[in-house]
Design a protein around this nucleic acid. Structure first.
Length: 314
DNA sequence: CATTAAGTCCGCCAAG
DNA sequence: GCCTTGGCGGACTTAA
C-alpha cells in the first residue's frame, strides 16, 4: 500500500517550498523497500500552475482524493486572506489526511482554516509576529525549524521544508532511512541550531513603549546582570506580566531575548574585529568564555572559534 | 559525566 | 461576564 503524498500548489507558490519536500520523498523512495511513496503535485482544478518565479508546472486536480500526507507550500498571497475555494477544499480534505503540513507562509492558510487553533505551529521568522497577532489561538513557536502537533506540521523558511520532510520519513521508516536520505541529499539530518539564528532580534522594535524601554535597556547594559526581574522593573511591570507581554510582543521569552542580544552582539564582534574571545565574552555579558561557547553551540551549532575561522577563510 | 543550585517559564487561579 | 493582572508552584534548562 503506497502512501500518497500530495503537494498542493496555487498560482504564485514558492517553488522550493514544494520541490524540497518532493525531492526528499523521492530520494526516500529510492532508498526504502518497494518505493513506499506515491507523489503528486495537485491544484484545485488541475492543469498548469505558475509559481512565483514564473515557471509553470503541470498539476493534477485535487478532487477529494484520499491522501496520507498533504503539503502546502507558501507564497506571497498566503499573507492575505486566501481564495475561498482553496480554504474550503483544505477544510474538507484536511481531516481525511493522516498528516497535513505547511511550509513557510503556507501556515497562514492552515491558520485560516482553523487547523492550527490551540496547536503549536511556526512560520517564516519574518512573519512570526504577524501570525501570532492575527491568530492568537495558535501557540506560535519562534525557534524551531519545524513543529508537529497532533498531525499538523508547520515549517519555517523554504529549506526547513526539507527538515520537515526528513522528520516525516523518520516517522514512517525510522532513523536509518531518514539519515540515508539526508546523506544522499547532502543536507543535515537534524540541522544544528534553530531558526532564530537567521533572525535579527538586535534590531527588533516592539510597539509597546514599556517593552521597548526594557529592550533598549538590555541593549545598552549588556555587560550587566539582566534578569527577568531587573527588566520587569525597568518596564514597571510585575515579572509575571512582563514575561507575558514581552513574549506577546516579540515572540521570544525575556531571558532568551537577552541571550540572543548577547549572542548576536558577540557574533558581530567575532566577525568584524580582532578582539580576543575572552574580551568579547566579558563585554557582551557572558563573562565566562565557556558560557559563551555553550550558548554558541546551542544557537549556531558551532563554537565561537569556528565562526571566526570561517570569516577569516572567506 | 553526575549532582546540586539558580534561574526561567508557564499553567492555574483568584482578584481587580 | 470578559479581560487584565500578579502570585504561586512545579517542570524544565542552564551554571557550577
Amino acid at each position: 500500500m503506497k502512501r500518497e503524498i500530495g503537494l498542493l500548489v496555487f498560482p504564485g507558490f514558492q517553488l522550493l517550498d514544494m520541490s524540497g519536500p518532493l525531492a526528499a520523498f523521492e530520494v526516500a523512495n529510492s532508498l526504502a523497500a518497494g518505493q513506499p511513496y506515491r507523489l503528486s503535485v495537485l491544484s484545485l482544478s488541475g492543469g498548469a500552475v505558475t509559481c512565483s518565479a514564473g515557471i509553470a508546472l503541470a498539476t493534477e486536480a485535487l478532487d477529494n482524493r484520499a491522501l496520507d500526507t498533504l503539503i502546502l507550500p507558501g507564497g506571497r498571497e498566503c499573507l492575505t486572506e486566501g481564495p475561498d475555494e482553496l480554504v474550503a477544499a483544505l477544510r474538507q480534505i484536511a481531516p481525511l489526511c493522516r498528516r497535513v503540513a505547511s511550509i513557510c507562509t503556507g501556515a497562514f492558510r492552515l491558520a485560516q482554516v482553523g487547523l492550527l487553533d490551540g496547536r503549536r505551529a511556526t512560520t517564516h521568522w519574518r512573519h512570526i509576529t504577524t501570525l501570532r497577532q492575527r491568530f492568537p489561538r495558535i501557540r506560535v513557536d519562534a525557534e524551531s525549524f519545524f513543529v508537529e502537533d497532533g498531525g499538523i506540521w508547520t515549517a519555517t523558511g523554504t529549506n526547513a521544508g526539507i527538515d520537515l520532510s526528513l522528520a516525516m520519513i523518520e516517522q514512517d521508516f525510522g532513523l536509518a532511512t531518514a539519515r540515508a536520505t539526508a546523506q544522499m541529499m547532502v543536507v543535515h539530518q537534524r540541522r544544528p541550531g534553530n531558526q532564530t539564528q537567521f533572525a535579527g532580534y538586535v534590531d527588533a522594535e516592539p510597539r509597546l513603549p514599556a517593552i521597548r524601554k526594557a529592550l533598549n535597556y538590555a541593549r545598552t547594559h549588556l555587560h550587566e546582570r539582566l534578569s527577568v526581574e531587573d527588566l520587569a522593573e525597568i518596564a514597571c511591570l510585575s515579572p509575571r506580566q512582563f514575561s507575558r507581554v514581552f513574549y506577546g510582543e516579540t515572540g521570544i521569552t525575556p531571558a532568551k531575548a537577552v541571550e540572543r542580544l548577547r549572542i548576536e552582539t558577540a557574533k558581530l564582534r567575532l566577525e568584524t574585529g580582532p578582539e580576543p574571545i575572552e574580551t568579547i565574552a566579558q563585554r557582551t555579558g557572558f563573562d565566562d568564555p565557556e558560557r559563551m561557547r555553550r550558548a554558541f553551540l546551542r544557537t549556531y551549532g558551532q563554537p565561537p572559534q569556528a565562526i571566526r575561522r570561517a570569516i577569516r577563510l572567506s
